[in-house]
Simulated scan of single mutants.
Amino acid sequence: MSPSIHPQPRATAIVASDLDRTLIYSANSMALPGADDAAPRMVVSEVYNAAPLSFMTRAAEDLLAGIVERSHFVPVTTRTQAQFARVRLPGSGSGYAVTTNGAVLLDHGQPDPDWSAHIQRSIRGQCAPLGEVLEHLTGAAAVSGILRVRTAEDLFAYSIVDRDALSAGYLEELAAWCLDRGWTTSLQGRKLYCVPVPITKEAAVAEVRRRNGGGIVIAAGDSRLDAGLLEMADLAVRPAHGELDSDGFTRANLTVTAASGVLAGEEILRHISGVLERTLQRTPDAPAEVREAPTAAVY
């Protein structure tokens, strides 16, 4: 296959952020402190079945609008394309976005065919088929703690689980079984993900960085599926809640918020805004350092 060559703009900072429980929050995940009359003003970020579902503070939305103006903002989510399409943020539909945990790279709202083809080839060459994983989750080896099994765009599986009903060794056994077949597992709240090894958020963001001509990457996320993204970033920030907080996840490049819940989302954006401001002050004619010369992608 011929190399896929994309236009290479002057490198600018890339802000790559997870969405749920990092930037946007359901009513049940806000964890607001204090009295109701002290709560911050909110904006609706997602509507589902004609009802508001996800929110951010008004201050957070204003901060994000400023970040969109000064960087390449890349939403990065495990949501499917359809689930992501419900989310409304400053800059929605422009530039790049990563959905389906990295399997889909959207360019101005449209799936990038080169990236999709690359992912499909990688899965075929490295991983057992999805059907084998589904059979393991729902067939003779099924356990009572797995309540429902669903697929995301026929690329990976996720299950709704009763954590208390899962045996002590089940997750370790499932992780080993999946790894032998080129898959990884991650338990987040009541969702258990089984994902092919080539599908990662960090791989998709690395491709955005390449197309961007280099530049620093500033990343944010709260879950174990965000760990690789935070590790590959030049600067990273996570909220003081979620799986990574429970794991005590720390790195030299990582800042942890003081707040948790929806106020952590605002703090994350305030931190990133400050980083961008300092970067622009240091290098007004080059918003971010160019780390490497752009090359053609050969998938």
Rank of each mutant, 00 (worst) to 15 (best):
I14L: 14
L134H: 14
V290D: 01
R270A: 15
P113H: 10
T200E: 14
G109T: 07
R10F: 09
L106Q: 05
L263T: 02
V68E: 01
A176I: 04
G228F: 03
D180Y: 02
P75L: 03
L171K: 05
R181N: 09
L64F: 07
M30K: 02
V76Q: 10
P113T: 13
G189K: 13
T295F: 07
T185D: 04
D37C: 09
K191E: 10
I216V: 13
D18C: 06
L230G: 09
Y25V: 01
N253R: 09
Y25F: 15
V161R: 01
Q8S: 14
A296S: 13
G214V: 00
I67P: 06
A293E: 09
Y48K: 10
D234F: 03
S167K: 11
I119T: 06
G242M: 01
V98N: 01
T185G: 04
A258Q: 11
V217E: 06
A165Q: 14
I67G: 06
V76M: 08
A258T: 10
L225Y: 04
P239H: 10
L235D: 09
A140I: 08
D18I: 02
H271Q: 08
L230P: 04
A203P: 01
L137V: 08
R238G: 12
A206P: 00
A264T: 01
A27T: 05
E69G: 11
A252R: 12
L174A: 08
V98C: 02
G95D: 06
P198K: 06
E292Q: 13
A297P: 00
L137H: 07
Q83S: 11
E202I: 03
P3S: 08
A142G: 13
A296K: 02
S186T: 10
W177S: 05
P196R: 06
V104T: 15
D180A: 15
H6E: 12
P90Y: 02
R10L: 13
H118W: 08
L192M: 09
A39G: 02
G125I: 00
A39P: 00
A51Q: 14
R282T: 08
